[in-house]
């Protein structure tokens, strides 16, 4: 299973990222399933994200869950992730978005993201994403990459 988390440059410390990742993994295993969860952190450069018409300080957590996952359990999971996330980061509730998408739809979203790129663009995007994430994993223990190449 996959999770992409978008955060703003300089907003959340490495220690907080590690604590957040631990919480997300724990809650995912408790509420969703024991499948391996690959979490990739995507950092947006300053002045590259806008929420409610203003430069943003928001975080977006997205995860895939098995298709047709029960609504009540899905909602309980997202609310718990949101609550724990804000406890660690101190962010305002309006600055945190948590999504748990059916696996097939999540695949559609990721495919849609790649479809707008050229074949070379897809290759370089995936290459940069994985090489940066792997370097980050070796250095910091978590997979961190950037929106802006």
């Amino acid at each position: 299973m996959r999770s992409l988390i978008a955060i703003q440059e300089g907003q959340i410390s490495l220690e907080q990222i590690k604590a957040l990742e631990e919480v997300v993994r724990k809650l995912y295993a408790e509420h969703i399933c024991d499948d391996k969860l690959t979490i990739i952190w995507n950092v947006a450069a300053k002045q590259h994200t806008i929420t409610d018409r203003r430069w943003s300080r928001s975080s977006t957590v997205s995860m895939e869950v098995p298709d047709g996952f029960e609504t009540q359990r899905r909602e309980a999971f997202m609310l718990e992730v949101d609550k724990c996330w804000r406890k660690i980061t101190g962010q305002h509730p309006d600055q945190v978005s948590v999504g748990a998408f059916d696996q097939s739809r999540y695949g559609d979203i990721l495919k849609g993201n790649l479809r707008r790129l050229s074949p070379w663009g897809r290759f370089t995007y995936l290459f940069k994403l994985f090489s940066r994430a792997m370097i980050s994993k070796m250095r910091h223990g978590v997979l961190i990459t950037q929106f802006n190449q």
């Binding site: 929420t51 979203i109 479809r115 790129l117 050229s118 663009g121 802006n148």
Partner: peptide
Amino acid sequence: PSEFVNVVFMTGYSMRRGTVLGVNGN
């Protein structure tokens, strides 16, 4: 409401032929 709307700009990507800006909306 406008507070729901998030926009993220990603740069450095080689776009498909003929496209300069690719917009995906969830």
